[in-house]
Design a protein around this nucleic acid. Sequence first.
DNA 1: GGAACTCGCCAC
DNA 2: AAACGTGGCGAGTTCC
Length: 463
Amino acid sequence: MAKAGNMEAYQLLHKGMLALARAERQGIRIDMDYVNRKKQQMTNKIEHLEEDFRDTKFFKDWQKRSKAKININSGQQLGDYLYKVLKIKVGKETKSGMGSTDEEALKQLNIPELDYLVKISKLKKIRDTYLDGYTREQVEGYIHPFFNLNTVVTYRSSSNSPNFQNVPKRDEFAMQTVRSAMFPRPGHLLLEVDYSGVEVRINACINKDKNLIKYIKDPTTDMHRDIAIQIFKLDEYDEKIEGHKTLRQAAKNGFVFPQFYGDWYKSCAENVACNWGELPKTKWKAGMGIAIGNTYLSNHLISKGILSYDKFTEHLKEMEADLWKNRFPEYAKWKDVWFAKYQKKGYIDLPTGFRCQGVMNKKQVCNYPGQNGGFACLLWSFIEADRIMQEENWDTRLIGQIHDSILLDVLPSELDHVVEVLYRITCTDLPKAWKWINVPLDVDMEICKVDEPWSKKKKYAFR
DNA sequence: GGAACTCGCCAC
DNA sequence: AAACGTGGCGAGTTCC
């Protein structure tokens, strides 16, 4: 509920709803011939994999020892067989305490036949959630995803029918398969304008941590680089050296962001070592993990005295303490003060004018301002761009939004002007309108050539 | 036959 | 002491 009498927060939602409705009505073009072709291809592939799986000893035994007909899509039936019939010791558990059958759990079991099931479910996810969703939702070759402003506790948006905010990106195959279905209108191009690190910047405005602000203001510094150097005990960071960029990514997505959200060192250690460094949870030997320059990550860490996963975990425990005690002490202090204030009042008032109330834990109380503020920046910019688009009679259209980015379907002759306007709105006009934004904002842009699908987007050097 | 649940997985 | 914040959605399952 917006703070009583706060017109600014109300207006943001009201105008936002109207601007988003225009994008919904416009829609995104889908190449339905491609979608149908691809779905058929994937169905054939899935059938082959299923046949191969049914031919394995593993499956035949599973079927023999089961009363009913096996459904190979059922995690529950698989879990029963693995953990109750075969009595394999449960490694990973689900939230409710059952033996997990997710990809990670199955990998740990070292049963090669289970690879079939992992492959099949990945293909089905792409086919049934995304491509089939577009078939179901399209009207004359356009999907019209909804963007809701009334569903999320932090006043972020959500999207449905189809959800436009969870289209695959990281997995290369899934990304290619799904995003190759999405096109601009004929003769147009797709442009994505993306606020860079907006949640962190908003958090800095709120918690006013001097070290965090310095990282944002001084372009010669790089927080994720510095943390990568510390995590991996690098003597130097050079993105030209093989593997260093990956280590920076690992530091950013495996440690810094999870820590900011309230995660703890043990799960960060798994993120960083297992997911990004590809190191096992054992004592390390030479030649393990990703390549770093002309050696391997394990060799490098061993040379620095980190001989095993356990040692690495201890190292991250120290880094966690260092992060909050030395690197961002004012941020840590703010969390305590902010939570104490919530406990006293029962709600939090955010600089955007919104109020969050109800039962919340400390992590929620401390995460909501950044999430709220980041999206509020996006929505304000979206509204402005929508207003100018109408005022100046653009043929270019806003067609979607993904929390901190805007997707536009652009008439090529309008591109330069659209880019200029979007850059001005996001990085100049917004900080002028909202005085509490006292760090610089920045955007990245990505673009596809005329008549190319969203899978082809490339960095756009607009400055 | 549908509502409500769990699980798994996609995004920021 | 416990251990990552916000969503949507498909499939399987259970309950009414």
